[in-house]
Amino acid sequence: MDYDFVPMPRRKPLKWPNGKRLALILTTNLEYWDKVQESDRPYYPGGPGIVGGNLPGNVYDNPNFTWREYGQRVGVWRMFDVFDAEDVPSSCTINAKIAEERPEIVEAALDRGFEIVAHNYVQDELLTDYMFDEAAERAVIRRTLDTYEKVVGEKAKGWLSSSLRSTLNTIDILADEGLIFVTDLLNDDQPYLVKTRSGRPMVSIPYTSEVNDFSFLRQGLTVDTGFQMFKEQFDWLYAEGAKSGRIMNIGLHPHVIGQPFRIRALRDFIRYAKTFDGVWFASREEIAEWYLQNHASHIDPTP
């Protein structure tokens, strides 16, 4: 995995289709966690807990498991109601096990025409566990993609690693498997091409760990300060987009933003964003396919 360092001043203006200024991605992370693991190592759930303290993987953590399951039983449906009422799409990431264990959720996203992005096999397994075993990492990715194709009915085009913990081999493996975009890289507000060993093109479409509903937990945000975080990000990027297009992603988790006392921040932000011309409620696949055809007009190709 390799990419050129091209700082913003060295790029040509990015011109989104139809004169859009800002590609806005509302990412709903549809994730499944195992109750227990066959391990006495500390359990890694891939996000903050509601009750502190790390139990070993083979010990059931009831408050944290059932808190996260609230997102599957209640929170995600509240989010889908908001998306329906406001008539906007979401880009949904799924790990393979939620498709196996909670298929109703994936079916509801597909029924709405929402984009589905592959998101590892299970949330508490990290690809970095296989940093020094590429064959094992490839097996996890392939197993995930096989389940994705079975459930979604087509091959995956993009990938988000659990907790964004990819290895130096991940993007090369994804390119070998025919994917065209990756969401693990946090280092930009625009898409760019990533080089791969095979020479197959891969587009980076950035995720964010900051404009994320986990900030409600980590920073003690309220519904109003959470909305303000979304708005501040939007306003600045929208202004910059007048000269060169930008991407804004919001990372959302049904057990967090789907709580009744937080959901208004999402609804009010969507309503705010819709008052602006030039906002593209985009899927990552749309961005990636467009960028593969237009990248040379943005960043000069290198040999």
Rank of each mutant, 00 (worst) to 15 (best):
M1C: 09
V6S: 01
R11T: 09
L14T: 04
K15H: 12
K20T: 07
A23G: 14
L26Y: 07
L30C: 11
D34I: 03
V36G: 03
Q37E: 12
Q37A: 08
S39M: 11
D40C: 11
R41L: 15
P42S: 10
I50F: 15
V51M: 04
G52C: 10
N54P: 10
P56S: 07
V59R: 05
V59T: 07
N62D: 14
N62Q: 13
P63H: 04
P63L: 07
R68W: 09
F80D: 15
D81T: 07
D84Y: 01
E86G: 09
S91V: 15
C92K: 04
A96W: 03
A99W: 14
E101Q: 15
V106K: 03
E107M: 00
D111P: 13
D111I: 07
D111R: 12
V117A: 02
V117D: 10
A118M: 07
A118Q: 07
L127Q: 03
E134F: 01
A135Q: 15
A135C: 08
V140R: 08
T144D: 11
T144N: 00
E149I: 01
G158S: 06
S163Q: 10
L168D: 13
I171V: 14
A175V: 04
D176E: 11
G178S: 06
V182M: 09
T183D: 14
L185S: 06
N187F: 05
Q190C: 00
L193T: 02
K195E: 11
R200A: 15
M202Q: 08
I205M: 11
Y207G: 10
S209E: 10
D213A: 02
S215T: 02
Q219E: 13
V223R: 05
D224S: 05
T225H: 14
M229S: 10
K243I: 11
S244Y: 00
G245C: 11
G245H: 02
R246G: 04
I247N: 05
N249W: 02
N249E: 13
G251M: 12
H253G: 03
H255A: 02
V256Y: 06
I257F: 03
F261V: 08
F261D: 14
I263F: 01
I263P: 13
I263M: 05
A265L: 06
L266S: 06
R271Q: 15
Y272H: 09
D277L: 01
G278K: 03
G278D: 09
F281Y: 04
F281E: 05
A282H: 01
A282N: 01
E285H: 01
E286Y: 09
N294Q: 05
H298V: 06
D300T: 15
P301F: 00
P303T: 11
